[in-house]
Amino acid sequence: MLLNIRNLHVSIEGKEIIKGLDLSVNNGEVHAIMGPNGTGKSTLAAVVAGKEGYEITEGEILYKGKDITDLSPEERACEGIFLGFQYPVEIPGVSITNFMRTAINEQREYKGLKSLTASEFLAKMEDKKKLVEIQSKLTNRSVNSGFSGGEKKKNEIFQMALLEPTMAILDETDSGLDIDALRIVANGINKLRTEENATIVITHYQRLLDYIIPDFVHVLFEGKIVKSGGKNLALELEEKGYEWIKEEVERMS
């Protein structure tokens, strides 16, 4: 098992957001997480990626069989975890090229590999640019600075393509994309799929799942996964909304 989250409880400033969450992901799988606004999807993603400011009060996050809750975000990244941000951060003054070259080389150093030379890096970048049809002029600009909403999301997938993670968590990467961009991004994600890696897509729209066929669909509600199913669950949610899930949860408790 690649990722195994058991009975996870997470609080922010004393307020419990994740309330006993279980999720397991195997190599080669695609999982979709859906759920109403404010139920803790992004919180879950941030906690797995190692963002500070969250208190894990109970439970564990096992990645490749080891508890990663004590690892720094950079160590987790080097171990193969990637977070596609719901709101990618603008960093004026740091170009994407320099940012990614620094990131790749730090990850390579962690793994005991030799740094990429400038020309090796540029060749790799050209290759990955094609994958997400990202424009050259974008990579010379500062990270996300003044990018449109769609450009920011494309840039996340571009970074994912360069870093080749084992466990990618994509938080609403489809939001804000036009119809063509959605197809390009989804195709990019599909091309990056291997037997070894796994992807969690957090989304509000069934549409994405027409392109990226998930093995599992989970509903996150009030800090817990309350329902899991196959790709048909997404269709059902699209049709009926979350009301019936809420009713189901109330009936159970």
Partner: peptide
């Protein structure tokens, strides 16, 4: 966090 989440 953004930079660190990429391994820096």
């Amino acid at each position: 966090f953004y930079l660190r989440s990429r391994g820096i």
